[in-house]
Design a protein around this nucleic acid. Structure first.
Lengths: 225, 225
DNA sequence: AAGATACGCTTACGATGTAAGACTGTCAAG
DNA sequence: CTTGACAGTCTTACATCGTAAGCGTATCTT
């Protein structure tokens, strides 16, 4: 330590940056403000660092996002033992919950061309579970495609809604239908007023219906168990 | 600089801009280069106009995208007569085809908070079809959520793949697995090598399997027909 | 003829991702 | 202890983005 007595205050030995710290800070900010809001400068600021310093831990913004996505994958829970239908249901529910926490991640989970280790691990586990349950390879491909498409697709619709409170849903629906003559869309209006805006309705509950239908169909399609 | 006597050539009476022309040009450019690539300046350039001129026909970039999305919705084909299962199948197939042409549109179809007329029209038609087929309102909500989630979700996975040729698929798979020790992901490797990379495989065909499973499940769930 | 409106253009501002390179503290080898 | 390499930070700079403000002109209305 030269410069001992200089007023050159370097008092706080600040926590050094690391890829992990960068990714986690990015995750937190994206959760709070959205992925689009997140810029290298803002991320740097949150870490008490200039933007360019981040590039020593992350090769560019895309790489940052790749890393964040893999953190999201790591949050997905998948029970490795037990019956396949229960496992698949638990997985789907977990994916939905995780994507609820990280709404920005939604379109990006399957479209990364450089999947991270957690991503691959997860896929391998799921495929393994189905194989162990006696699914032939071709059916595994079918099942995987079906379940993933549904789960991600549902999460996508889900994300559109503010979904915090029923009042907000009602407000949004009203706002949309108010911009157009209601009688041009009678069926849409019926569904909205007679069903969606009724007290007990919660779009999230649709998820279980579809999921059960899928699992039942898959079972029928040929699991040996 | 009034540039008094300049031969201020205004020779070609150029086609005047219009909202429709702007939207369609945007659509074409986004199809070719992606939505992110498309900027107001580039769009202006393609139309032989400065960027700011576009704002007389579109309130901002978001409005531009909204309009483009509604053009996409208008491309979806939905047969208004005939049996509900056939109609739903045709619709899903059409959605997939449309999203194949306009890959950039994928995450945006359901998450717009200001849906256009084609969007609402389409939803109304689909709901009407199911109602006429005897579905009670609650089941319509279930069915709609299920079919849309699956269709959009599938299109999302689909989009990730270059999907032009089987060789490209193989190349991508190889590239991904090459970055990691294969034996850590035995099931993923099996599925890839024993199935996906086999000559006849085409991911697109998975779509039909899932779609039929869904429709069958829905029929079972209570259509009167 | 006069005024309004529609529609194009110019300029300008603050943000973004990131290339290039300067500075500084840490640590290994001489 | 000195020296040099290197890793990690910061500074500067640039092209590009969306769009606010306002100017100019061609066309339409009165």
């Amino acid at each position: 330590m030269p410069a001992d007595r200089t007023p050159r205050a370097r008092p706080v030995a600040r926590v050094p940056l690391s890829r992990d710290r960068v990714l986690r800070a990015g995750l937190a900010l994206a959760d709070e403000h959205g992925l689009e809001w997140l810029s290298m400068r803002k991320l740097g600021q949150a870490l008490g660092v200039e933007a360019m310093s981040l590039y020593h831990h992350v090769t560019n913004r895309d790489d940052l996002v790749d890393g964040m996505i893999d953190l999201v994958f790591a949050e997905i829970e998948f029970p490795l033992d037990g019956e396949w239908q229960a496992a698949m249901r638990a997985r789907a529910v977990s994916v939905r919950a995780v994507l609820g926490r990280h709404r920005w991640a939604n379109g990006l989970m399957e479209s990364r061309s450089t999947p991270g280790p957690a991503n691959l691990r997860h896929h391998d586990d799921v495929i393994g579970c189905l194989r162990r349950a006696g699914f032939p390879v071709a059916l595994v491909a079918h099942a995987y495609s079906l379940l993933d498409s549904y789960t991600y697709g549902f999460a996508m619709s889900d994300r559109a809604l503010p979904f915090e409170s029923p009042e907000q849903v009602a407000e949004l629906a009203q706002a949309i239908l108010a911009r157009f003559p209601v009688d041009e869309y009678p069926h849409l209006a019926e569904l909205t007023f007679e069903h969606v805006l009724k007290p007990g309705y919660d779009y999230g509950k649709e998820f279980a219906f579809g999921l059960d239908l899928l699992l039942d169909g898959l079972r029928r399609a040929g699991a040996t168990t």
